[in-house]
Design a protein around this nucleic acid. Structure first.
Lengths: 341, 341
DNA sequence: CTGTTAGCGCATTCAA
DNA sequence: TTGAATGCGCTAACAG
């Protein structure tokens, strides 16, 4: 049977309240009693029951993350890996744990939100990929439930952490331009995804500023789709001399396409991706990539959420932007120096 | 303020017990009362408090996973991604959630186990990578705490799901032999890791059975280490004609090494990895890999754990082995057919 | 400094 | 069929 404070109290010949005080580190306890209680706790291998504590304190020390993905699509999703690992990392030093959930469709998503929040399973929530006018957000606001959004809630009163995808697009583009590339194509994701559209905007700005002609190609997410789209581009008229690709995964597809057409990287084709992930080390000479500092974003998001949970209010500034930076590698900078065109 | 069963009861003019019964779907409630209660619950947007329910029922509907890794090493760990996503996937249809934790060293590992188990934060635990004579396991057994191990606990009374790494090693080796390779080297991880050592065993058996000379090279985990070890091997005396590599990541390192030495894959060098991960599609022509069916393992582990939690005892057979299978791709099978030597 | 008491919100036994 | 009463294990206000 499980040993409770009452058991300890009986053995130590004190009241259960005293046991509780000892546990809380209350100074106002006679040292001799304190030691006795502690000794018996150790002897009896006592551990407080977090369930009871949760009920009493009205908090669970759990924070929730709910991801919506098609069935089985989590394994290969680098965003998922970065997100969860970042959260767990950031939580490691805190008395909080991560409660991870996963839904495949909108209906069950709402159900899970009910289950996690309103049932008080977690103390707060990290939201990602909010869609425009997200119902979840309204519910959370109405119920004054602590939450933070990674992304753009389009509402300055809501706590959020974001990167600046427009700037990221600019940075990548300007880097390629500075290396002498001119016929730079942006290989984007499907239209309608904010992070993709924003990067495209930055790209277009930079191109126009440099007096160059922007050219955007949309394709599905993923390695294969990007490879095929790149091949079509290489084989078509007006082959680009550089490509800015939505993410490292797709950029790797472009890299594969270049290899299969025997185009030299970076001399015949410059490639820049986004995210600065492990994949960048998997191409010969490395893949240049714009880092969005997802890791930092996650850390900040966690810190902000815990702040809100503990202070009971949204701390200002509600919205924080994490800067991006470019990691230059072989795919955009020949060992022989800047490309001359 | 939060609405409770007592609130509902007061409004509906019934006792709190009746509200509880309605919630539980108890048949022995007058339909008219039932409807009234349900209506008011909906009106008042009532949700039961899982904390109170947990305390009362002595269960949290949470299962725990604790991973031990060096700081920040989670992001790029494909095992972590497969594991967590598999668990969350498997849990999606059940009334359970995943509580994910993470520690960097042994001391905090034990602390977290205390915190999660003995404090009853979770109903059960999934353990991975148990070391020989794992203390955690003894504690869990003593406290009759529900848990299941992914790996080999070397104890037939403990619930565990495992793959057969020895067979996996054999399969990979026999495949290479059947393709005409003879000077096959096994690039293994550091010594002392069971999954690595077992695969080596299978490799050695298969080589000896075929009358070939086994040759095992140990190196650190990771892409770079494997690449460097492979380069050393290629540059040294008696260059291999095929390599069996501990995991896909390292196999990709071998693949990079081969490219930088201008060795044709698969004609001059066959490569086979393990895990059949996404990386296998990133090499030109694909990387042949032995699938350990980690996904299936995880699903089975979750099912087994829930079984134990709900039945209160370890179900037989305690130990289950998930079969492995090889996915043949370009790195071991030339489009021109079987390699002739 | 310590013990008594009162809930936290819920499920459940026991009476009615 | 329903309600009153009890307790899960803990913290905290209050009294002594």
């Amino acid at each position: 049977m499980r040993v409770t404070q009452a058991d300890i109290a009986k053995i130590a010949n004190v009241s259960q309240a005293t046991v509780s005080r000892v546990l809380a580190g209350d100074d106002h306890v006679e040292p001799i009693l304190r030691d006795r209680v502690l000794r018996i706790m150790r002897e009896k291998n006592y551990r407080p029951d977090v369930r009871a504590r949760s009920l009493r304190l009205q908090q669970t020390n759990l924070i929730g993350l709910v991801l919506k993905r098609p069935r089985g699509a989590l394994v290969d999703d680098p965003f998922f890996a970065a997100l969860t690992s970042g959260i767990v990392d950031a939580l490691a030093a805190k008395p909080y744990h991560l409660c991870l959930d996963y839904v495949t469709d909108q209906a069950s998503q709402e159900h899970v939100y009910d289950e996690m929040l309103r049932s008080r399973r977690v103390d707060g929530l990290i939201l990602v990929e909010p869609t425009a006018r997200d119902e979840r957000v309204e519910l959370l606001q109405r119920d004054k439930f602590p939450f933070v959004i990674i992304g753009n809630p389009h509402n300055d009163e809501i706590a959020s952490i974001d990167n600046d995808n427009v700037v990221a697009g600019r940075i990548g583009t300007e880097h390629l331009i500075s290396r002498g590339y001119r016929k730079i194509v942006f290989l984007a994701g499907p239209e309608g995804f904010v992070f993709s559209d924003d990067r495209v905007d930055g790209y277009v700005q930079a191109m126009v500023d440099a007096g160059l002609q922007p050219r955007v190609v949309h394709c599905a997410f993923g390695l294969e789709a990007a490879r095929d789209a790149s091949l079509a581009l290489f084989d078509g008229p007006d082959c680009p001399d550089a490509m800015l690709v939505l993410d490292d995964f797709m950029a790797y597809g472009t890299y594969m396409a270049a290899r299969s057409r025997y185009m030299e990287v970076p001399d015949e084709l410059g490639i820049v991706g986004f995210n600065d992930s492990l994949l960048c080390r998997m191409a010969e000479g490395g893949l240049t990539s714009v880092s969005l500092n997802l890791d930092l974003m996650v850390r900040r998001a966690v810190a902000k959420l815990l702040d809100i949970i503990e202070s009971g209010q949204v701390t200002t500034p509600a919205r924080e932007i994490v800067p991006c930076a470019i990691s230059v590698r072989g795919s955009s900078s020949s060992a022989r120096g800047v490309v001359q065109k």
